[in-house]
Computed example of a mutant assay.
Amino acid sequence: MTEVQIKNFSAGSGRPFVLVAGPCVIEDYTGVMQIARSLKEITKRLDIPFIFKASYDKANRTSIDSFRGPGIKQGLEILSEIGLELDVAVMSDVHSPSEAELAAEVLDVLQIPAFLCRQTDLIVAAARTNRPLNIKKGQFLAPWDMDHVAKKARSAGNPQVLLTERGASFGYNNLVADFRSIPIMQSLGCPVIFDATHSVQLPGGAGGASAGQRQFAPILAKAAIAAGADGLFLEVHPEPDKALSDGPNSIRLDELEPLLNQLKAINNALIKPERNP
Rank of each mutant, 00 (worst) to 15 (best):
T2F: 07
E3F: 03
V4F: 07
I6V: 12
S10A: 13
S13T: 04
G14I: 01
R15W: 14
R15S: 13
L19V: 07
L19A: 07
V20H: 03
V20R: 04
A21W: 00
E27A: 12
E27S: 11
Y29G: 00
T30M: 00
I35W: 07
K44I: 00
R45Q: 04
D47S: 05
P49E: 06
P49Y: 09
F50S: 03
A54H: 06
Y56E: 01
K58E: 06
R61C: 04
I64V: 14
S66Q: 09
F67N: 07
G69P: 10
G71W: 02
I72W: 10
K73Y: 03
I78N: 01
S80A: 05
L86D: 09
D87R: 13
D87N: 14
V90F: 05
V90D: 08
V90L: 06
S92N: 01
V94D: 06
H95K: 05
S96M: 02
P97D: 04
E101A: 10
E101W: 07
A103V: 01
A104N: 03
E105W: 02
A114Q: 08
A114H: 13
L116F: 08
R118D: 10
Q119L: 02
A126H: 11
I135L: 04
G138W: 00
Q139D: 10
L141F: 09
W144F: 11
W144T: 08
H148M: 10
A153S: 10
S155A: 15
A156L: 06
A156C: 08
L162F: 13
T164Q: 14
E165Q: 03
G167I: 08
G171Y: 13
L175T: 06
L175E: 10
R180N: 10
S181I: 01
P183M: 07
Q186C: 06
S187G: 15
I193D: 13
D195K: 01
D195A: 03
T197G: 11
V200T: 12
A206Q: 13
A206F: 07
G207I: 02
G208R: 15
A211S: 15
Q213S: 12
Q213F: 11
P218R: 15
A226Y: 07
A229K: 09
G231R: 08
G231T: 13
L234S: 09
E235T: 15
D241S: 15
D241E: 14
K242Q: 15
L244E: 12
S245T: 12
G247K: 05
P248W: 08
R252H: 11
R252L: 02
L260G: 10
L263F: 04
K264C: 05
I266V: 05
A269T: 04
E274K: 15
N276R: 15
